[in-house]
Computed example of a mutant assay.
Amino acid sequence: MADDHTHVQEFFTARAADWDTRFPDDGPAFDAAVSALGLHAGDCVLDAGCGTGRALPALRAAVGPGGTVLGADLTAAMLDSAVRAGRDRSGLLIQADAARLPLRARAVDAVFAAGLISHLSQPGPDLAELARVVRPGGRLALFHPIGRAALAARHGRTLTGDDLRAEANLRPLLDRSGWRLDRYIDEAARFLTLAERTD
């Protein structure tokens, strides 16, 4: 597992400085995904794998000044980029592994995770860890600003049946990890899965 974490940190450390400039048009997709999460004023929300914090301003707007926004990422360089962009004003940034969050059980109302699922070393246990920190009935959004086919094409790959984000694979994985899949969208312009924390 340490090797997986080292690989993820090296990958994102090398790309942190120009991450936002590589994807300058993603803002509206992030805003729409945050809106779909259905947050309320005063909620506590975790952005797991927050990267440079692109979702934090929208999350702050959704929960209002009385809410709590936490941004957790494994890679210090990505958090540094979030601070340089001023996004730390929208939430508290913490360097933490999504597989071992420094939060008590049922501490948050919702989790937003952009691009995270592709980088989980143990997807089942890691999604269960996200479930641990969410109250029953709380929400999870797994998001990417482009769909599975477009992302595969960007990386020169074709989709295969074992793709973790395919609905046939993701639904039972979420079920086993403390979540119930409510909505699944996979289109060219976005990938969005919404799930609810089960009891």
Rank of each mutant, 00 (worst) to 15 (best):
D3F: 12
V8S: 07
E10K: 12
E10N: 12
F11S: 02
A14K: 04
R15I: 01
R15N: 02
R15E: 01
A17R: 05
T21G: 11
T21C: 09
T21S: 15
D26Q: 04
G27Q: 09
P28E: 07
A29P: 08
A29K: 05
D31W: 03
A32S: 14
S35I: 14
L37K: 06
L37S: 07
G38P: 07
G38Y: 11
H40D: 11
A41C: 10
G42S: 10
C44K: 13
D47R: 00
A48P: 07
G51N: 05
A55V: 03
A55Q: 04
P57W: 05
L59K: 09
V63P: 04
P65S: 15
G66N: 12
G67K: 06
L70W: 04
A72S: 10
A72K: 07
A72G: 06
L74W: 01
A76D: 10
M78Y: 03
L79K: 01
L79E: 00
D80E: 15
A82G: 05
V83S: 11
R84H: 11
R89Q: 10
I94Y: 02
I94N: 01
P102R: 07
D109F: 00
A110Q: 02
S118G: 13
S121G: 09
S121E: 06
Q122K: 13
P123L: 00
P125V: 01
L127C: 11
V134H: 03
P136I: 05
G137I: 07
G138W: 03
L140P: 01
L142E: 00
F143M: 00
L151D: 03
R154P: 07
R157T: 08
R157H: 12
T158A: 15
D162L: 15
L164N: 01
A166S: 09
A168D: 09
L170N: 02
L173V: 03
L173Y: 02
L174N: 00
D175C: 14
R176E: 13
R176S: 14
S177W: 02
W179H: 12
L181F: 02
R183C: 14
I185T: 14
A188R: 13
R190P: 04
F191T: 04
T193N: 11
L194Y: 04
E196S: 15
R197L: 08
T198K: 14
T198Q: 13
D199A: 14
D199C: 12
